[in-house]
Design a protein around this nucleic acid. Structure first.
Length: 303
DNA sequence: CATTTCACCTGGTGGC
DNA sequence: TGCCACCAGGTGAAAT
């Protein structure tokens, strides 16, 4: 489900709730698909580690993890009875030396729950935490992926050790943005969806940003004028920022880390509005197939 | 190399 | 109610 705004919302929600909490134990389902790193390695690698912070890159959620053994020897002697994610100065200064990387695929959810919360169907991971809560990964279609990696010495302490390959649409400048599409013959919509060019744009925000930039999805990426590309860059940035403000788009079942729905679906101008009147000109929104994806646009506003 | 197509999954919806 | 076709936020491998 999740594109950049949804993934950002979830990452922030998990970060707020679980920063400086500690993973006590990890359970995983027996389905093989979600595990980019073998389940057993993940379970072994995660157990006992502290969560130093959680952030987004592209459509990936990255949990920065610290050592399993508390750096303060006196803390080792204390039983793990703390209920809150009680931060201590030593913990706060610890450097990440491992990462848990979550990709939600189409239907993945990452939820912070109480342990008594009923286990949803298609739950593939449950991390129990020192605070008594759980971090759960639920994914009916199993397109999501979980990965655990230890950082080598070179990457220690740098929160950027894992990067999505493409550029970040919220921070890319006009020159870099234009360069991404130069000489390319594929449709601009297909280019927007290519994660090695731009990281984080999916079907909803590709369609919505092309509408706001008044550009037809089928236009060849390399044939757009500099002015059109700049319109597109700003439209994309505005749409993504607004969507983050509204907690993402809940089209069918998206919810954030606390189970709350987003509201940006109320602002959609074209996505899943086939046949409905364009919000700007009243012309019925058209749907075509492009790059194998449903593609929605206004035939009058978008040229 | 650039680009397109398809397989991977389950579930919801709407037509008959 | 059942059955079926079609649709769905993503991506990576295979084909072109």
């Amino acid at each position: 489900m999740p594109e950049l705004p949804e993934v950002e919302t979830i990452a922030r929600g998990v970060d707020q709730r679980l920063r400086l909490d500690r993973i006590v134990d990890a359970w995983f389902s027996s389905h093989p698909q979600p595990f980019k790193t073998p389940r057993t390695s993940q379970a072994k690698g995660l157990a006992g580690r502290i969560i130093l912070g959680v952030h987004r890159t592209g459509k990936h959620i990255v949990c920065e993890l610290g050592p399993a053994a508390p750096p303060n020897p006196s803390a080792t002697a204390q039983p793990w009875e703390g209920r809150a994610a009680a931060p201590s100065k030593t913990k706060a200064h610890a450097q990440p030396d491992a990462q848990w990387i979550v990709h939600l695929g189409m239907t993945g959810r990452l939820l912070v729950t109480t342990p008594d919360e009923p286990i949803a169907a298609h739950t593939h991971a449950r991390l129990s935490l020192l605070s008594g809560r759980e971090l759960r990964f639920v994914d009916p279609r199993r397109f999501g992926r979980l990965e655990f990696r230890e950082l080598d010495l070179r990457d220690r302490g740098s929160t950027g050790a894992f990067h999505a390959p493409g550029a970040e649409p919220l921070s890319i400048d006009a020159d870099e943005f234009a360069a991404l599409f130069r000489g390319r013959k594929l449709a601009i919509k297909a280019a927007l969806l290519n994660q090695t060019l731009l990281a984080g744009v999916g079907n909803i925000y590709a369609d919505e940003s092309l509408f706001h930039a008044a550009i037809r999805p089928r236009r060849a990426a390399g044939r757009l004028t500099r002015a059109e590309l700049e319109r597109l860059r700003q439209a994309l940035r505005n749409v993504l920022q607004q969507a983050i403000k509204l907690g993402g788009s809940s089209v069918s079942d998206y919810v954030d880390a606390g189970g709350a729905r987003g509201f940006f679906q109320l602002e959609h101008c074209v996505y899943l509005r086939t046949g409905e009147p364009c919000r700007r000109c009243g012309t019925p929104i058209r749907r075509i197939l492009l790059a194998g994806r449903g593609t929605h646009f206004c035939p009058r506003c978008q040229r």
